[in-house]
């Protein structure tokens, strides 16, 4: 039968990789195969739909093949692209793989930027990477009364698995949690143990209200440091806004109002 074959899979790396596995194994002409993420959306006439059941083993096989044939760099690009919110991502990855596996040296596939699928994967991966980078910089932990470091983020893309390794490497002896309030899931890192991702739709953020006894003072110290360090003669709030967009600021203590009045400032320094 002619026409598009559409594999509809779950919006996750495992879901998409399983879809790719199934499409590949189906024996249909690869050019006619489409990987669609999430809901079916608009039914297309003459298209045939397959609903994909996520299977860890299939996903694992695809991941291993990408790593072996295309190398770690390309694999990272692909994983980043998959964390994007873009709905075309699954298909872009699939067709990038088709192209790569047909090449003598598959590790060069990601440099083929004039190919629309590769171009798409590259662009998505770069967008995700930029967001990851931003949160590596602008994420803030607060220390809760029970000693845990807690950070809340609201990223556009699904980046928890990309940022957590950075903090786990940096803070091996700390218990910390990074909570993605958009997707209602969190990365949990118990000290000296491996981290994991937990989905928790019923998580009560109020439970994180109680802070350690030094927390307020330390936030205050940093707030005052950020204020002091600015050179008055060069003030440029517009530039500050360009470099640190407002959307990041709501979890950053340096942009909160100060709760203290320093006796030093009172002395009109």
């Amino acid at each position: 039968m002619e026409g598009e074959k559409i594999w509809v899979c779950e919006d996750s790396q495992e879901g998409i990789f399983t879809g790719i596995y199934d499409a590949w194994a189906s024996g249909y002409k690869k050019e006619e195969c489409v990987i669609q993420v999430g809901e079916i959306g608009n039914y297309r006439l003459f298209a045939q739909y397959f609903s994909v059941k996520t299977e860890e083993e299939k996903a694992w096989k695809v991941a291993k093949t990408i790593l072996r044939r295309m190398g770690e760099r390309a694999y990272r690009h692909i994983c980043s692209a998959i964390s994007s919110t873009d709905q075309e991502k699954g298909n872009a990855v699939f067709h990038t793989l088709i192209l790569g596996f047909a090449m003598e040296d598959a590790s060069k596939a990601m440099t083929y930027l004039s190919n629309p699928y590769v171009g798409k994967v590259f662009t998505l991966s770069r967008q995700v990477y930029n967001e990851v980078h931003h949160f590596m910089e602008f994420l803030r932990f607060r220390q809760l009364e029970i000693g845990i470091l807690f950070a809340k983020i609201h990223p556009k893309n699904d980046i928890l698995t990309h940022i957590t390794p950075h903090f786990a490497d940096r803070l091996p002896m700390e218990d910390f949690i990074i909570y993605d309030s958009v997707r209602e899931k969190m990365a949990i890192h118990p000290k000296q143990k491996r981290w994991s991702i937990v989905q928790d739709k019923n998580f009560q953020i109020e439970k994180t209200k109680e802070e350690s006894k030094d927390e307020e003072q330390i936030q205050e110290l940093f707030r005052s440091f950020c204020k002091t360090i600015a050179v008055k003669e060069r003030e440029n709030k517009e530039l500050q806004r360009q470099m640190l967009p407002l959307k990041f600021r709501d979890n950053m203590p340096e942009f909160e109002e100060s709760k203290w009045i320093s006796h030093y400032e009172e002395k009109s320094y």
């Binding site: 980078h133 360090i229 440029n236």
Partner: peptide
């Protein structure tokens, strides 16, 4: 505690945009 990132990271920006 700690590691370093070769490109460096900027954790905040002061009112002069630095």
């Amino acid at each position: 505690m700690g590691n370093t990132v070769s490109g460096g990271l900027c954790h905040s920006f002061s009112a002069d945009g630095r």
